[in-house]
């Protein structure tokens, strides 16, 4: 299913190149106002690189990825005779924008009727809220949605999704607490088919990726969904909290292995955390980021914009 939704990597189009230039321009402008001692300097020193590396680490990009990015920028600087710290930073930004621009995908709003989206992730990452947001978003895009209350484990998780369904104005299929989530998913898909709802969003219980049984349960959910909707795509959306550190890489690996994550929702970007670890997730696993969450209201949600994301990392 993965390949269906992912077009092959391609070289940047002229339009994308223009975007990159824009990003570069922003760097120049943004840098002028910066207090960072980095930009008081007119020449690149060892300190410049250390500070850039720290900037990346601070944004949770991770020490190894940060080092690699800085190393590559360093080579570029030597090759291209770049001399100012601003240009050094730009070199790193350009690399990151380029890497994140490598994969193209079909967003949920453009997926065919019958699509089932499993929303998965560790405890408390923002799955249920993201479903409310995605439902609102899809609704605005003219797609009809049905919610499946697949978290039958956590106390009052079903009630939480019910409240959202009511607020957003979309139908919901729910069973009793402790019920088999597979049965919920099956019923929800059948209900969507008979009512003509185009996209089913499945809330799942939060689970740590290290819990073998719970990950198997998730695989089972996917099998059930595939069986109930044999001709429709079943995609998995991993919800990652932007405050998460390097553990997000292990999370993504595990969920990828178990239910083949198609895209990521990066939540809680309204805080001070930058969510830089998803860059490393993408760099390593090529799982693209689809959407971002920027608050607790249902409209605090947007498609992921890699330029904006990279720029924010450096702010």
């Amino acid at each position: 299913m993965r390949d269906l939704f992912r077009r092959a990597p391609k070289t940047p189009t002229p339009e994308q190149k223009e975007h990159i230039e824009e990003a570069v321009q922003k760097t120049r402008e943004g840098a002028l106002g910066r207090i960072s001692s980095l930009f008081r300097e007119q020449v690149i020193t060892g300190e410049t690189w250390d500070q850039l590396e720290e900037l990346l680490i601070q944004a949770d990009v991770g020490p190894v990825t940060a080092m690699t990015l800085v190393e590559r920028a360093r080579e570029e600087v030597e090759r291209e005779e770049i001399r100012t710290p601003v240009e050094a930073e730009t070199a790193i930004r350009r690399q990151m924008v380029h890497i994140l621009g490598e994969v193209d995908f079909v967003p949920v709003e453009d997926m065919p009727d019958g699509t089932v989206v499993l929303v998965v992730g560790v405890n408390g990452s923002g799955k249920t809220t993201s479903i409310a947001k995605l439902a609102t978003y899809l609704h605005h895009q003219g797609r009809s949605v049905l919610l499946a209350a697949g978290d039958t484990f956590r106390a009052a998780a079903i009630d939480q999704l019910r409240v959202w369904a009511e607020r957003v104005g979309v139908p919901i299929v729910a069973h009793q607490p402790e019920a088999d989530p597979g049965a919920v998913v099956f019923d929800a898909i059948k209900a969507a088919q008979s009512r003509g709802a185009q996209i089913v969003l499945v809330d799942t219980a939060g689970r740590l990726h290290t819990k073998f049984n719970l990950m198997e349960e998730l695989q089972k959910l996917k099998r059930v969904a595939n069986k109930a909707a044999p001709d429709a795509p079943v995609v998995s959306l991993l919800v990652v909290d932007a405050t998460t550190g390097q553990n997000a890489i292990l999370q993504a690996k595990s969920f990828l292995q178990s239910v083949n994550v198609d895209g990521i929702v990066l939540t809680k970007l309204d805080g001070t955390a930058k969510g830089g670890v998803v860059f490393s997730v993408f760099n390593e696993l090529k799982v693209p980021i689809w959407y971002i969450g920027t608050g607790e209201k249902p409209d605090a949600f947007a498609p992921f914009d890699h330029l904006q994301f990279v720029n924010a990392l450096f702010e």
């Binding site: 949770d60 909290d241 805080g271 001070t272 955390a273």
Partner: peptide, 12 residues
């Protein structure tokens, strides 16, 4: 606080 928190933990 969540054990998975990254660099931002100190700010919060």
């Amino acid at each position: 606080a969540d054990a998975m928190t990254g660099q931002d933990a100190v700010h919060a």
